[in-house]
Design a protein around this nucleic acid. Sequence first.
DNA 1: ACCATAGATCGATGAATGTCAATGTATGTG
DNA 2: CACATACATTGACATTCATCGATCTATGGT
Lengths: 117, 117
Amino acid sequence: MNASRTLELTPAGTACCEPSASPALAAEDAADRAVVFKALADPNRLRLLSIVKNAPGGEACVCDLTEPLNLGQPTVSHHLKIMVDAGLLHREKRGTWAYYSLIEGALDRVTGLVESL
Amino acid sequence: MNASRTLELTPAGTACCEPSASPALAAEDAADRAVVFKALADPNRLRLLSIVKNAPGGEACVCDLTEPLNLGQPTVSHHLKIMVDAGLLHREKRGTWAYYSLIEGALDRVTGLVESL
DNA sequence: ACCATAGATCGATGAATGTCAATGTATGTG
DNA sequence: CACATACATTGACATTCATCGATCTATGGT
C-alpha cells in the first residue's frame, strides 16, 4: 500500500507557520527517500545486497548469507527485513527456506531518487 | 587522501579464516560506500542537499538553510559537514559566510555506487 | 507424534546518531 | 579596540541502531 512516490510539495497542513512555498523537498518526501538510503547505509546490508544480486538465479536464502558476512542468523534476517521494507528485496518462502531476490527495477528507482533531488 | 575507489577484493590480511574469495563486496569497499549512503540517509540532509543543488548560483550559506528546515544553526552545520566529508558538498568561505555547493558529478558517482553493486 | 532444520521474533546491550544550548573562532564594522 | 555577525566546535541528552542469545513458528522427514 505504499511505494507510490507522492511528489507532493508543501503538505498544506504541517504545523502553523511557513505557509508559503519552500524550494526544497517536502518533509514527507524526504522522509520517504531517507528510508531507502537508510537501507543502503550499512556496510553489511550493501554486501548482502551485492550477494543476492549476483547470486546464481538472482536469489539466496538466509543460510547462504550468514556465513560469508560472519554474522548471526538473527542479524542477517534483521538486515534483510529492512531492505524488504525499503522496497529493495523480495522475499519468497519455499519449503523451509526463505529466498531473497532483488526487486525488479529497485536499483533504478534508487538512482531516480538521487537524480531527482 | 581518500576518494579513490580502491575496488580491491579479499584484503588478504583480514582475520584468520576465510582465505578464499567471497563473491560479495569487499568489507572495506562496502564501508566506503556506506559512508555516502549514510550521508543521504537523513530527511533533513536530503532537504539541505536539495536546497543547495537548486539554489540560484548553485550555492547557499548556512544562514539560508537554517530557517526553511526549522533547525538550529549548529545542527545545520553538523549535517553539512557530514555531506562534505562524504564528498557530496563543497565548502567555500567568503568573508563571514560559508557557501556550500554540490560537488561536480557527485550525484553521478552515487548512482554509480548503486549500479555497480 | 517426534525431532531436526530454517528462519522470524523478542529482549538486552553497547555504539552511533540527531538535536540543542553554550562556547569558541574568524571576519567585518563602528 | 569594541562589538556584532556567521559559522564551527564542544558537551550533553535522548533516540535510534546493529548485534547477539534465547525463544517461537513453521516445514519436512522418520
